[in-house]
Write a protein that binds this DNA or RNA. Structure first.
Lengths: 195, 195
DNA sequence: CTATGATCTGAACGTCTGTTCAGTTAATCA
DNA sequence: TGATTAACTGAACAGACGTTCAGATCATAG
C-alpha cells in the first residue's frame, strides 16, 4: 500500500507521544493497546517501535519528562520575597501549570501503579522533589512565625492534594476563569496556613 | 479433582467481591483479569460467573455499594449544631470513613473511566449527592456569615480533594495517629473557610 | 439410599495483546 | 543514475483475555 502523502518530515515521534498521552489519560495505560495508539497516529502498530522500546517506556518517558518540565518551569519562576509571597507564587504556578497539561498530570498521578518497580522509583523520587518545594516554603514560614502549621508534612500533602484537585473539575467552558480560580485557591491556601 | 475441603457454606460470593476490590485497587480494573481474581479466591475463572454477571458488573457493584454505604453512614452521624460543628463533623467523618476503606475509595475515584456510560451516570450521581452534603454546609455557613467562602462550589471541590488526599499518604505505621490526622485536617479546614 | 440442586472444574471459543521482522516504499546522497 | 537509509507495512508469533458450558462433585432433603 502507498502512503497517503509523500511527507517524510519525521514528525511521527512526537505524534506518538501525544497520542499515547491523550489515550493513557482518557482510558488508562492498561486499557490502551499499541494498535489504538498506532491508529490515532495513522500508522501500523509495528511502526511505533521505531520510536519507543516498548509500551512501558512510552509511559515512563511521558511521566519523566512531565515531571522534569514541572521542576524546570518552577525554577524559572522568580523567587518571591518571604514565605507568604513564595507560597502564593507556588500556588499560582501549580494551578497554571496543571491546568495547562491536564493529561500529563492525570497520568503522573494515576499511573504510578502501572510502572515497573525500577521506573516507579525514579518517578517517585521526582515527585518527592516537587513536594519538597512546598514543604520547604511551609517550614520556612512556620519557622519565621508567618504561618501556623502544626505539622509541616501533613500540610504539604493536604495542600498539594487540594491544588491538584483543580484538574478534576475545572473546565474552560465553566463559570470561572483560570485567573479567578487562581485567586480563589490562593485565598484558601493563605488562610489554611494561617497567614 | 477433589475440592480442598467439604465446606459448602456459601462464602464465595463475598470473597469474590473482596478479592476484586483488593486487586482493582492495587493494579487497576483493566490490568486485572478474571483469572487473577479467581486465583485469589481459590477457584477457577468460570466459577466467578455464579456471583457476577460479568467483569463490568463486578466493578459497578463495588462502586455503587461503596457510595451507598458512604451516604448511609453519613446519615447516621448526629447532626451538628450550626455550620461550624457540621463542618467539623463532616471532616472527621470523611477522613475516618476513607481511612477505613482505602481500597473502595481508591476504586471509586480512579475507575470512573472504566465504567460503561450507563453505569458511569449512576455512580456520578451518587458522588454528586455526597459532594452536595459538603456544599450545603458551606453555603449555610456563608449565608450565616460564619464562613468566608467567596465561591461555594470551588471551596467544596477544594476541600473534598484535600480530605480525600489523606488516602494517598496516610499509613498506619506512620508518624501520626488517625485521631491526630483528623485534628490537623479539622484545623486546616476551619481556617480555610475562615471560621 | 436416591434425588435434587448448588457449586465448581476444565476445556473450549473467538478475539485481542505486545512485539518481531522480512520485505516494500520513498526520499536522500554520491 | 545507482546506492543507501529511514520509515513503514502486513503478517506472524505465543500467550492472555472474557465468557460459556457440559459434566463432575458434594451437602442436603425426602
Amino acid at each position: 500500500m502507498a502512503r497517503k502523502s509523500g511527507s517524510h518530515a519525521g514528525i511521527t515521534g512526537p505524534r506518538v507521544r501525544d497520542a499515547a498521552e491523550r489515550l493513557f489519560a482518557r482510558h488508562g495505560y492498561a486499557a490502551v493497546s499499541m494498535r489504538q495508539i498506532a491508529a490515532e497516529v495513522g500508522v501500523q502498530a509495528g511502526a511505533l517501535y521505531l520510536y519507543t522500546r516498548d509500551k512501558q517506556s512510552l509511559l515512563f518517558d511521558l511521566m519523566q519528562s512531565h515531571l522534569r518540565d514541572l521542576m524546570q518551569a518552577w525554577q524559572a519562576v522568580p523567587e518571591g520575597d518571604g514565605p507568604a509571597a513564595r507560597l502564593e507564587a507556588f500556588t499560582r504556578f501549580h494551578i497554571r501549570h496543571h491546568l495547562a497539561r491536564p493529561d500529563a498530570v492525570f497520568i503522573a498521578y494515576m499511573e504510578l501503579r502501572s510502572l515497573e518497580p525500577e521506573n516507579f522509583k525514579v518517578i517517585e523520587a521526582l515527585r518527592k522533589r516537587y513536594e519538597d518545594v512546598l514543604e520547604e516554603i511551609l517550614r520556612d514560614g512556620a519557622a519565621a512565625g508567618v504561618f501556623t502549621v502544626p505539622d509541616t508534612k501533613l500540610a504539604t500533602m493536604a495542600l498539594i492534594a487540594m491544588l491538584t484537585g483543580v484538574n478534576t473539575w475545572y473546565r474552560d467552558s465553566g463559570r470561572l476563569s483560570r485567573d479567578r480560580v487562581e485567586d480563589l485557591y490562593c485565598d484558601m491556601v493563605r488562610r489554611a496556613v494561617g497567614a
